[in-house]
């Protein structure tokens, strides 16, 4: 049902269509007659009131018939004003009804919008959940990707570090130290750099095994060069350690500092090296079951093993 139909169904005497057919000039005339008619009324009432104040005035107005004429004009203006007001009020009433229908229509639209919003909210929630799950999935994938990338990079850096440290040993930068200390310093430097970080953090066991073998091989090659002999041959422990006594105090201090984590029970070789650097120049036989002889390979394997177990 349209707004017009519903209003026509009401029992008002003037329908909207009737009003719409009235020219705006007629409505304007109604307003003029009503508002300006009040001015006319006030004029006549003022004159009548003044003439009524005096006896002669009243008599004169009655005799001449002016009182009646004036009354007729007053009545006519009142009637016209009331008619205008009646039309105006009806018009206002119908306009109010039209406004109410408009409000009702708006309320229907609002309800429609709210219903749609509620539906939308449900769909939005489902969408949000899916989005959240997707976000978590992507996040974990990204995380895995980062780890992969990190691992790839870490392995490369560890390998590069290994090369770099052994290049330094091969270049003679550790010349002033005896072979055992050279080995220790190299392994210690690897522990604190990318090589050691990779071993501590990476899950890639195969890569770790490969690098460890590479470390062993490189250590053997370099120790062989430094000692000038086959590393499978046994040497006295004293021969390994006594050169340490001859180190400068600063160098000994450095060795002591770098090896302060070692314990004789768990890290016998490094501890022996450490004791050799002490001012008292302890010898490992004083430490109990320390072997008298050691081959180069044994030294390398032990030192790498002891360093691996470092906390």
């Amino acid at each position: 049902m349209t707004k017009k139909e519903s209003l026509s169904n009401s029992n008002s005497r003037l329908s909207i269509l009737t009003l719409q057919n009235m020219h705006p000039q007629i409505r304007e005339k109604c307003i003029f007659d009503y508002i300006n008619g009040l001015e006319v009324l006030e004029d006549h009432l003022r004159v009548r009131s003044k003439s009524n104040e005096q006896f002669f005035g009243r008599v004169w107005e009655s005799i001449t018939g002016q009182a009646i004429s004036r009354q007729q004009l007053v009545d006519q203006n009142i009637t016209t004003s009331l008619n205008s007001v009646a039309i105006w009020l009806q018009s206002l009433q119908l306009e109010k009804a039209e406004s109410d229908l408009a409000i009702s229509h708006l309320a229907d639209k609002l309800l429609e919008t709210r219903t749609a919003l509620v539906n939308q909210r449900g769909e939005h929630k489902a969408l949000a959940d899916r989005l959240h799950n997707f976000s978590l999935y992507v996040s974990s994938q990204l995380s895995d990707l980062k780890i992969c990338l990190s691992n790839v990079d870490a392995a490369r850096l560890a390998s590069s570090h290994l090369e770099q440290v052994f290049d330094k040993w091969e270049a003679g930068r550790l010349e002033k130290y005896p072979p055992l200390i050279r080995l220790f310093l190299t392994i210690d430097e690897l522990h604190w750099g990318n090589f050691g970080t990779f071993f501590r953090l990476s899950q890639k066991e195969d890569e770790k095994v490969r690098l460890k073998h590479q470390l062993v091989d490189k250590s053997i090659v370099q120790m062989k060069k430094d000692l000038g002999k086959d590393l499978s041959k046994l040497m006295l422990s004293q021969d390994w350690l006594s050169p340490i006594h001859k180190l400068s105090p600063d160098s000994k201090e450095a060795v002591l500092y770098l090896s302060d984590w070692a314990s004789p029970s768990n890290e016998p070789i490094i501890s022996a090296m450490r004791y050799a650097a002490l001012p008292e120049q302890y010898f490992p036989h004083d430490m109990g079951d320390f072997p008298y002889v050691l081959s180069g390979r044994q030294v390398i394997n032990h030192m790498i093993y002891e360093n691996n177990n470092r906390k």
Binding site: Q25, E28, F32, D33, N36, V40, D43, R46, R48, N77
Partner: peptide
């Protein structure tokens, strides 16, 4: 004051009377 002229004798025209207040 109180002219007896009547606007309703001219129903087709919109009239504004300036009457003495």
């Amino acid at each position: 004051d109180g002219s007896f002229w009547n606007r309703h004798d001219f129903p087709e025209t919109t009239i504004l009377e300036i009457r003495p207040g």
